[in-house]
Design a protein around this nucleic acid. Structure first.
Lengths: 247, 247
DNA sequence: CGGTCCATTGAGCTTAGTCAAAGAGCGTGG
DNA sequence: CCACGCTCTTTGACTAAGCTCAATGGACCG
């Protein structure tokens, strides 16, 4: 459980991923703003591989403040499929849903900091359906999640390994950018090739070879946990990329 | 546009798929019941291949009364991925969401009858968050949808063709059963092998071969649009089946 | 009786998986 | 400071699941 203090300090700041994501969909009232700041003030820390939410247990209203997590499902014989990545600023599960059993487990891929978003949910649930501000932001984030699932299905069903990898990187690039975690076309990707393989439905060996090919083609570079986008237009072309409507 | 009258008559009945699905999650009040019956009273008919909702257009609040539809996405070079099947009783898209752009197109796979569910949505949106009855039913149906997407991702990412096919048939079996469309372990499957291929991320030829193998193994039989489940336990075993929590 | 759509079959090929082993990087303890 | 062990990456050789192409067969329909 490293950088307690760092996580805490960042979480209180203004340009924090959570705040950026929530504010992206529109302005918040003073009341809403302070509600969010209250939530930011009480972070929880969890180590790698920690199960943030067990499959079948009621879904907690939790936001990820920092670190990487995923929603995943493991088959009887051990095969694992990562359903989606959870990035800083994201809810662990679609948040506007009532407390229903989780459709899959949520697991920390790095040490993470989470926030209890129950107060936000409570506030949003009693707000009228067409209210702007916070309620609207949360709905937007859920909608975003739906897009990601669709993209994941198309990737897995109809793209070859090379396309899948490029498409996933573009997705992460876009999402991390929205969270303010990209600079100079470059971002941190703290994932092993095995994790990428489990997300893309590939073997580790093949992921390795595909990455080398992409590097040779000078589309992007991935070294020691850092990704640099080298040729965005061609990446978008290769992956048949459709921008995710953020608003 | 065949069987207009049939669709209409069924839609007004009590054991209709829509009514079964909505009533499954709990009892409705008299007001809610009549609201649903009003909706059932004005069906719309659409031919095969009709685009029920275009990608990017605001999602209509629509229920499928009869026939089969799907949500799909087509890549630039023509590759198609079916994201999910929409069966009688299902909403075309998660229904409790506000009118947001559709993440993919909805298309009729057979002639279909649809219902305008806007009155139900309006009613449910103004109901308190923890109200039972209709609002709860609609939320339940959305939650169900989320499970299906997860299952589709796991199928495509981590199962081989044989397993995928068996798993999909089990899913359809379960869902059609909930809609009252299964009898004697047998149901109608009005899909070409090409449609199955596009749902499972396989080629038509391979779908054909896998189906033959499954038939030879006496797990199930699929002939002229009818599927018969022959060995449910072994199918569940093969597909690593986890029952979808309906309640 | 042709035409159309769909299912089926065969042959050959490609993508991606498996198995096994060898580097590389990194933290820990001697 | 180095050696060991751990995890992760990389490479090679081989295998196999699944794809493409092409042709045939069947059913239905005007």
């Amino acid at each position: 459980m490293a950088n307690h203090s760092t996580g805490l300090r960042e979480a209180s700041g203004r340009g924090t991923p959570v705040m950026r994501r929530i504010a992206a969909a529109g302005d918040l009232t003073a009341v809403e703003l302070s509600l969010v700041e209250d939530v930011l003030a009480t972070p929880s820390h969890h180590p790698v591989r920690h199960v943030l939410a067990a499959e079948g247990k009621p879904v907690p209203a939790v936001l990820l403040a920092s670190g990487w997590a995923c929603r995943q499902r493991v088959l009887n014989d051990g095969r694992r499929q990562i359903v989606s990545f959870v990035l800083p600023g994201d809810p662990l599960f679609p948040i506007m849903r009532p407390a229903i059993p989780a459709s899959c487990a949520a697991v920390a891929l790095t040490p993470v900091v989470t926030l209890n978003a129950a107060p936000l949910l409570a506030y949003a649930q009693q707000a009228p359906a067409d209210a702007g501000g916070l309620a609207n932001s949360l709905r937007m984030m859920d909608r975003f999640d739906e897009f990601l699932l669709r993209d994941q299905i198309v990737r897995l069903g109809r793209q070859i390994a090379y396309e899948r990898m490029v498409h996933l990187i573009l997705e992460l690039f876009t999402r991390l950018d929205a969270a303010g975690l990209v600079s100079n076309n470059s971002f941190s990707l703290p994932l092993t090739q095995e994790i990428l393989a489990d997300a893309l439905g590939l073997s580790v060996v093949h992921v390795n070879r595909v990455l080398q090919q992409i590097r040779r083609d000078r589309l992007m570079d991935m070294r020691s946990g850092m990704v640099t986008i080298l040729n965005l237009p061609q990446m978008q072309q290769v992956a048949d990329w459709t921008p995710i409507p953020l608003a």
